[in-house]
Simulated scan of single mutants.
Amino acid sequence: MTSPEDAPAPELSAAASDLRMATFRLARRLRAQRAVDTMSDGQFAVLAALKMHGLHTLGELADRERVTAPSMNRTVNGLEEAGYLTRTTDDDDRRKVNIELTPAGREVVEETVRRRDAWLESVLADLDEDEREVLARAAALMRRVAER
């Protein structure tokens, strides 16, 4: 049980709530900028992880995305059927199956990132230099908070 002295100050609670909501809204706006409208955020996250970190097994992808293996299997099946990734048997361990991006999958990730960056650049262009500087500092702080 917390004592009144341990409770966060009301202004800290309000700041936390404002930051959470602003971050959520910005993330939603960025997620809307995608190359394939029918692709879910979870599907895109798998493609982006493969582009950034290279091939993975199904279990490694499930761990990375914090979902169950059966759930990841369904996601991978859909992406494989769409031609965005492939499964290949590992050369060294025939029991192991590696999942990797196809050129079409890489193109989806690159185009989605390009669209998201372009949208954000257009928004930043409407801000003055001081506002962009504040956001640059805030981005560094948000990265630090996210790494905790």
Rank of each mutant, 00 (worst) to 15 (best):
F24I: 04
L61D: 00
R29V: 07
R116L: 04
Q43S: 11
V67R: 09
R64A: 09
R28P: 00
V36T: 03
S122F: 06
A14N: 11
A136E: 15
R114I: 00
L30W: 08
T57W: 10
E100R: 15
S3D: 12
H53T: 05
A138C: 05
L85E: 06
R20Y: 11
V134N: 07
L26T: 10
A69M: 06
R137C: 05
P4G: 00
L141H: 13
R106A: 15
W119D: 08
E11H: 11
R29C: 10
R66P: 00
F44I: 06
T23M: 07
D92K: 14
L120A: 03
V145F: 14
E81Y: 06
E107V: 02
S40Y: 02
S40H: 04
G83R: 09
D93G: 05
T2Q: 10
V109A: 06
G105S: 00
E110W: 04
E110Q: 15
A138Y: 09
P70D: 08
L50Q: 02
D63G: 01
V109Y: 04
S17F: 09
S17T: 15
D37I: 01
M21R: 13
A125Y: 03
R64E: 12
V109C: 07
T2A: 12
T75F: 01
T38I: 02
A69W: 04
A138H: 06
E11Y: 08
L19C: 05
P103T: 04
L127E: 10
V46C: 12
T38L: 08
V134G: 05
E80F: 03
F44Y: 15
F24Q: 09
R87C: 07
D90E: 11
V109L: 05
M21G: 04
D117K: 10
D37W: 00
R144Q: 15
V109P: 08
P103V: 03
A49R: 11
V36D: 01
A9E: 07
R31P: 01
M21K: 10
N77T: 09
A104C: 02
L124R: 14
M39L: 15
E80G: 05
D18T: 10
R87V: 06
L120T: 02
L47K: 02
R148M: 08
L124W: 07
R116Q: 15
V123I: 12
R132L: 07
L127Q: 14
S3Q: 07
V145D: 06
E65H: 14
L85A: 07
T23C: 04
R64V: 02
S71R: 14
R114G: 03
R144F: 11
I99A: 01
G59N: 12
A45D: 04
Q43T: 00
R34Y: 05
E147K: 12
D91S: 13
D126Y: 00
P8D: 03
A140F: 08
F44R: 07
E133Y: 05
R25H: 09
